[in-house]
């Protein structure tokens, strides 16, 4: 064994001490509270998605003639196909929920403030990529709802000023949903977006490592209490435990509420009641409330405001020292998002 280690050491010139220093970041004590570990949760779920996604791709066929039948084969015939598809579907749902909760935690604890503004923006890019991966993945099933969701989604992009038509044509591979569309969605879902997410995650984690985790103090903290604990093995074991709980949860969800087959896509008939995936309920309701251009421009503006929020907040706090306006803005946003989502969930039209 020592010979092997010696052999490796000669070829990989990294000292153990250096490696320990690099990986063993002191973790602030507040990370013992599980809700501060929400950043690691989507990262773990992303790995689950990559593994189950690769397995699903062995049988999935991205063509409008064969997609639905191949998903039916995975769900009903392939051994444990129902389980893998169920885990993939539920991990997507939990991943989006975890990303949103993580973002809320960062927002309400002010962890995006100087010097971490750029990392918030990287996080926003990760949120957009995650939502786009969810959208393209949902479209691949080629059910009625996923087909019409994709049609509506692609037509929304057409309203983006200047580049709208180009974006829509590039996304659909034509003016309308056509024989090339599904393969484009598949490439985006299974290659372009995951690679982008990996690169962004690399930047996200590097910035966290360079800047350190935001230090937070709590009222119930003892004055003499140790402020940090080791990443390895303490925090690593916490993450392992979260991973185990998630695997159990995913397995339970995939078994109790399995991914099913809806009616096959029919381009000639839009279902009487049509809904996107839950995480787009807000935008779907928004589109019903306002005219196309108003709805899309306002959504773009809100997304842009979220992106540059650390700078806006910085300017506000510079003008009014110690202002906590961000908390009120955040509360308003959460109430609006939850309200619109619930509204869309409980009415047919």
């Amino acid at each position: 064994m020592s010979m092997l280690i010696g052999w490796l050491k000669e070829r990989i010139p990294v000292s153990g001490d250096r490696l320990r220093e690099m990986t063993n970041e002191p973790v602030p004590n507040h990370l013992r509270r599980w809700w501060f570990c929400l950043g690691g949760t989507p990262a773990y779920l992303f790995v689950v998605q990559v593994v189950t996604g690769i397995l699903l791709a062995f049988y999935y066929q991205p063509s409008s003639r064969t997609a639905y039948e191949s998903v039916r084969y995975i769900t009903e015939e392939a051994a444990f196909g129902w389980y893998l598809r169920g885990v993939h579907k539920w991990a997507a749902t939990l991943m989006i929920a975890a990303v949103i909760l993580h973002q809320m935690r960062v927002y309400f604890t002010g962890a995006y403030r100087k010097p971490r503004e750029i990392n918030w923006m990287v996080g926003m890019c990760l949120l957009v990529c995650t939502l786009m991966t969810g959208f393209t993945g949902y479209s691949l099933v080629f059910e009625q709802l996923s087909y019409w969701g994709a049609t509506v989604g692609a037509n929304i992009t057409e309203n983006v000023p200047v580049f709208g038509t180009l974006m829509k044509r590039m996304l659909l591979g034509g003016d309308t949903y056509n024989a090339n569309t599904l393969s484009r969605f598949f490439i985006l879902h299974a290659a372009v977006l995951p690679v982008t997410i990996v690169l962004l995650l690399g930047v996200h984690i590097t910035l966290i490592r360079l800047q350190g985790v935001t230090e937070l103090e709590f009222e119930d903290q003892e004055p003499g209490e140790q402020k940090h604990f080791n990443f390895f093995p303490d925090h690593f074991l916490t993450e392992l435990m979260i991973g185990l709980v998630l695997m159990i949860l995913l397995s339970v969800l995939a078994t109790a509420l399995p991914a099913e087959m809806g009616p096959k896509a029919d381009p000639m008939s839009t279902p009487e009641v049509i809904k996107p995936e839950w995480f787009f309920y807000v935008t779907f309701r928004w589109l019903k409330l306002f005219s196309e251009t108003t709805a899309i421009l306002s959504m773009g503006f809100i997304a842009f405001l979220m992106f540059i929020w650390p700078l806006v907040d910085g300017a506000i706090r510079k003008r009014w020292k110690g202002s906590e306006a961000s908390v009120w803005v955040g509360l308003f946003a959460v109430i609006a998002i939850v309200g619109l989502t619930v509204w869309e969930a409980f009415v047919a039209h």
């Binding site: 309308t176 839009t270 019903k288 039209h349």
Partner: peptide, 22 residues
């Protein structure tokens, strides 16, 4: 013309209706 869904004829209301965004 809104976002590309298929409208259908509602005889009782004498109108075409789009189920996507009403």
């Amino acid at each position: 013309p809104h976002l590309g869904c298929q409208v259908h004829w509602e005889g009782q209301n004498s109108r075409f209706f789009c189920p996507c965004h009403n």
